[in-house]
Amino acid sequence: MISDHALRLQVLDELAWEPMVNADSIGVTVHDGVVTLSGHLESYWQKRAAETAIAGLRGVRAIADCIEVRLPDQVQHNDDEIAAAVADRLDWVGAIPRGAVKVLVEDGFVTLTGMVTHQYQREAAFRAVDPLWGVRGVANQITIRGAQREIGRTDRVREDIRRALERKGVPAESLAVEEQDGTVTLSGTTRSLHEHDIAVAAAWAAHGTTMVEDKIRID
């Protein structure tokens, strides 16, 4: 297993390599594979880019993102301007049913609510909002109303998820998959946070999934 010192150096190298973030503004500490990011960046999408950049590193078990978003003076916007921009942006995303997502903005923090039928629509709403100037954070509280599964499809759902994991190079034998009434429960282990995220995404992609209970351990 990689040491915390070696992992910290890899995280610093990866942040320096990522062109979307200013690595000089980010502090990094590592304890038992948990990476804590501190400092400040100019936008929420840069904060997200820092998380994404290091999530795939071997040895990263979890990320605590304490980076503060400090918007430049020239892109400061009040809440009603941000809310209007978010609403317009959501209307232009074809993956999201028109009117399905509601928006609340308070001090630059955006809360998304409403109901959609698939996880990719929930994710599309988040991705539409997080790059906007003025946004300091996004809480995605959109719920999923999945299509009803056929009776007796539980075994098929488990097998579909396992095949999806194998196609992406994630050892399915190290994970247990259970499904009941639209809730998929994942347990077992993955080798990295990146593989963990692939497993969770595969569970969400299964037809009829309305909730994923994540009990995976990262070794």
Rank of each mutant, 00 (worst) to 15 (best):
I142C: 14
L132V: 03
V105D: 01
G99T: 03
T52Y: 13
A124C: 10
S25N: 13
I63T: 13
V69R: 01
V116T: 07
D91F: 04
I144W: 02
G146V: 01
I142N: 14
A124T: 11
D32T: 14
G33I: 00
V75D: 14
H40E: 02
A139I: 09
A95E: 03
I96T: 04
V110R: 13
A49I: 06
A87V: 15
L104T: 14
W45C: 05
D107G: 12
A100Y: 13
T111W: 08
G114N: 03
R127T: 14
V69H: 05
G134M: 04
R61G: 08
Q76I: 00
G114T: 07
G146S: 10
S43F: 10
A55L: 14
V135M: 09
L37K: 02
V138A: 06
A55G: 15
A85L: 12
W92Y: 03
V28N: 08
A84M: 14
A50N: 04
R48G: 02
V105N: 04
V93Y: 04
G56A: 05
A53I: 11
A55D: 15
P19R: 13
V93K: 07
D73Y: 03
V75G: 00
V75Y: 11
R98K: 06
G33H: 13
A87H: 14
L41Q: 11
V101G: 10
V21A: 07
V135I: 00
K47M: 08
S38Q: 02
A124Y: 08
D24C: 05
Q46F: 03
A139N: 12
L112Y: 11
L41E: 10
Q141V: 13
A100N: 01
A23S: 08
G27R: 02
L57K: 02
E123D: 14
D65Q: 03
R122M: 14
R122W: 15
V34D: 05
V101W: 02
A62L: 00
Q119K: 03
V93S: 11
R89H: 07
A62M: 03
T113M: 11
R127N: 15
G94V: 11
P72W: 01
T143F: 08
G99H: 01
V103N: 12
R145Q: 08
R98L: 12
G33R: 11
G114I: 11
G114Q: 05
V28T: 03
R122N: 15
D88K: 05
D91W: 05
Y44D: 06
L57D: 08
H31P: 07
P19I: 12
V69C: 06
R48N: 04
R58W: 13
I54F: 07
M20P: 09
K47N: 08
